[in-house]
């Protein structure tokens, strides 16, 4: 089906985007790559009165080095993020996760900011951003602010983004020297993750010094598996059985969805297995 009729603007600056959103009121929606919004519009599950398109805001495509952080423009496509040398060097987990999203056509269209703002708990990027302690930059009528990933995701398809605000960038602290892996479990290749685990580890003196684990589709938002992260600290990097055992608790305490691809019990089990695999591969990937 065609979407319900709507107005459309494509401003060239963030200021104009914010202005258009506030002029458009509650029924105005930002469109970035359109990979989540367009299907919803076509199924008439949403009927915004105005689409504010980011495609002409060139500044939002930029990926830059900002000292201790990497700043990825919200309009950067998954393809761009997955292949960008800066991202691959300083935030390998983000690049690997971006490369796992959808298929090539989707990765050429979909954007990191769009994916995060959509806040589908089965979306891939949230877990990776959480795992690397990333934060989001938002700009609205009252100026700009930075929100930590953990505070950004509020509920199923719901974020801390206020009406009139737009996600402009994702800030990722550099994780130079960390190993990482995104372990995604799907029923068919081209489907949402039943569960996925984003893992990053730092190894020092043959032992895990720090571990970060993000979970996809294990609740109403992306999650961190704090207990498993702590359990991994001090584990010998070469002892894969011990790494797996330490990561096996990743699903505990979560309340994942129940659908034909997985019961909550199954998903909790999967999270533990996949976390173990992700951590082992992350350790192997340490430079």
């Amino acid at each position: 089906m065609r979407p319900v009729a709507f107005d459309y603007v494509a401003p060239t600056t963030v200021e104009e985007v914010v202005q258009a959103l506030s002029d458009g009121g509650e029924d105005a929606t930002v469109i970035s790559g359109g990979q989540s919004l367009l299907p919803v519009l076509r199924m008439r599950m949403a009927d915004p009165s105005l689409l504010v398109d980011l495609r002409r805001v060139d500044s939002l495509r930029e990926i830059r080095d900002d000292g201790d952080n990497l700043v990825i423009g919200a309009r950067a496509t998954h393809r761009q993020v997955s292949t960008d040398p800066l991202v691959r060097q300083h935030a390998g987990l983000i690049a690997k996760t971006a490369g796992s999203i959808g298929d090539p056509q989707i990765r050429y269209r979909g954007t990191i900011g769009g994916s995060l703002a959509h806040a589908d708990p089965a979306g891939d990027m949230g877990a990776a951003v959480l795992a690397l302690n990333g934060s989001l930059e938002l700009t609205g009528p009252r100026g700009s602010r930075t929100v930590a990933g953990g505070d950004f995701f509020v509920d199923y398809f719901t974020t801390a983004r206020e009406p009139g605000e737009v996600v402009t960038a994702v800030r990722i602290p550099k994780h130079d020297g960390w190993g990482s892996h995104y372990e995604k479990f799907t029923v068919v290749v081209q489907a949402w993750a039943v569960v996925a685990v984003a893992a990053a580890v730092r190894v020092e003196g043959g032992q895990v010094a720090e571990a970060r684990i993000g979970l996809t589709n294990m609740g109403t938002t992306p999650l961190r598996a704090a207990a498993a992260e702590q359990a991994l600290v001090g584990v010998a990097a070469a002892d894969t059985d011990a790494l797996r055992a330490a990561a096996a608790t990743a699903g505990e305490g979560t309340n994942p969805p129940d659908d034909p691809s997985g019961t909550p019990e199954y998903r909790r089990h999967l999270a533990g297995v996949l976390a173990g695999r992700a951590v082992v591969k992350a350790v192997e990937a340490v430079a």
């Binding site: 479990f185 029923v187 039943v194 034909p260 691809s261 997985g262 019961t263 199954y266 089990h269």
Partner: peptide, 8 residues
Amino acid sequence: TTPLKVWS
């Protein structure tokens, strides 16, 4: 024979 059914 989905993963869920096989695992179950």
